[in-house]
């Protein structure tokens, strides 16, 4: 199957590959996977606690070209967004941007899941938007 030029671009020059310190209070880490294809995707965000804006995003994905491109694009989209805006990112945006064929849509879903997992991890660490949990934790 032929990959679109955009997928090839992200695959050959992935943006924001790497890792952030997962123990950093400002960092949220999302690790997701698709057992069927053996893919694993780690996506991390670094949030400015004052503004709630994502200042940095990194990923590392083991999987097919579309999975790598989806997560690469996701990190680009995340930077500069607030955590709540980030949760609004839908996989369909990734599908359209990368012109993913139907058999590769699950890769974009995985990227969306990774974003959600990273934000959830950040929120859990900082008990944002979940005062009940914060109280229980105290």
């Amino acid at each position: 199957m032929a990959y679109s030029n955009k997928v090839l671009d992200h695959y050959n020059n992935p943006r924001n590959v790497g890792a952030l310190d997962r123990n950093d209070q400002q960092v949220g880490t999302g690790m997701v996977g698709a057992p069927e294809c053996g893919d694993v995707m780690k996506l991390q965000v670094k949030v400015n606690p004052e503004t709630g804006i994502i200042e940095d995003a990194k990923f590392k994905t083991f999987g097919c070209g579309s999975a790598i491109a989806s997560s690469s694009l996701a990190t680009e989209m995340l930077k500069g967004k607030t955590v709540d805006e980030a949760l609004e990112i839908k996989n369909t945006v990734i599908v359209n941007e990368l012109a993913l064929p139907p058999v590769k849509i699950h890769c974009s879903v995985l990227a969306e899941d990774a974003i959600k997992a990273a934000i959830a991890d950040y929120k859990k660490k900082n008990s944002v938007g979940n005062p009940a949990a914060a109280q229980v934790a105290q």
Binding site: M31, V40, F62, H106
Partner: peptide, 25 residues
């Protein structure tokens, strides 16, 4: 079946898979 999302995969397994892939790389 064969649904391509890993909701049923325990996080420890994902971590281990990730680390192993790093080693392979």
């Amino acid at each position: 079946v064969g649904e391509q999302r890993g909701k049923d995969v325990p996080p420890e397994l994902l971590e281990e898979v990730f680390e192993l892939n790093m080693a392979i790389e």
